[in-house]
Nucleic acid binder design. Structure first.
Length: 268
DNA sequence: CTGGCGGTC
DNA sequence: GACCGCCAG
């Protein structure tokens, strides 16, 4: 055969190869999404799960939480935001429901009505758009905290968008977030839902090379400062909340990463 | 994206 | 109370 013929054959083979490869990749991703719910506890909630100071951990398919009955909200909500979770699908916004999995009785959404505060998602609805079920599951009252609207739609929203950016960039991140339930707090509603004075977010990435962490502590008010101004060490968040964030991590690594307040490994 | 709210049945 | 559609930053 002529050289040109060989070249043509090889070119076609490469093109077919790429298509087959992509097809297999897409199939694998879809299979992963289908399994998401069943594997949530094993994948999302095992290794990086924080400790509970309230002894009430609840696992949902899309996230886990530790519920604080005295403050009528979660002390933390934890979930893995995989790159494959990121989706542009629009879902109709459902109504908030009382989380029946909370045995002590989760707060009613009525506490928030006319309170002047948003029902602020802890696990954002936008992080669970991959299925309608996952999206709707974020509308449980165990996943919300009273948030000032300017804060929620402002700097906090900006941080949540940055988390999605990192999930895309670093092939997924594990997220732990909540209000700091300590000190003197305002309360709202008949059940007295505490209004946190600070909110935190702790991230760990173990998917893109060496394991890295970053933590944010934000006063409960909107700000025009850049996000990195709110970076603190994980140790600082632990000191405020009493939560041990990554107890399953090897001690040496945990101690080193949690003491650091450097954000050089995180692209802003 | 983050949400509230008023009107209707 | 549930639902729809409109509203704002």
């Amino acid at each position: 055969m002529k050289r040109r013929t060989w070249f043509t054959i090889i070119a076609i083979a490469i093109i077919i190869g790429v298509y087959v490869y992509e097809y297999v990749l897409v199939e694998a991703e879809q299979a992963e999404i289908v399994l998401e719910g069943k594997e949530a506890k094993a994948n999302t909630n095992a290794f990086f799960l924080p400790t509970s100071t309230t002894n009430q951990i609840i696992h949902h398919n899309g996230y886990s939480l530790s519920y604080s009955e005295p403050h009528e909200q979660a002390e933390w909500v934890a979930y893995e935001l995989k790159k494959s979770h990121l989706s542009n699908t629009n879902h109709k916004r459902p109504y908030f429901e009382i989380d029946k999995a909370v045995k002590t009785g989760a707060a009613s959404w009525r506490n928030y009505k006319n309170s002047g505060y948003d029902r602020g998602h802890l696990c954002p609805a936008a992080d669970r758009r991959y299925t309608k079920a996952a999206h709707d599951e974020t509308f449980l009252t165990s996943n919300i905290s009273p948030q000032d609207h300017q804060f929620n739609a402002g700097i906090w929203n900006t941080l949540e968008q940055k988390v999605r950016y990192w999930a895309r960039k670093y092939n997924g991140v594990f997220v732990v977030t909540g209000g700091v339930l300590s000190g003197r707090m305002k309360t709202i509603g008949r059940e007295g839902v505490s209004v946190p004075n600070y909110f935190y977010k702790v991230l760990i990435d173990s998917n893109s090379g060496k394991t890295k962490m970053i933590a944010f502590l934000m006063p409960h008010k909107d700000s025009s400062k850049p996000l990195y101004e709110f970076v603190v060490s994980v140790d600082e968040v632990e000191a405020l909340t009493g939560i041990d964030f990554f107890p399953e991590l090897a001690d040496e690594l945990e101690n080193k990463l949690e003491a650091s307040r450097s954000y050089k490994d995180w692209s802003f």
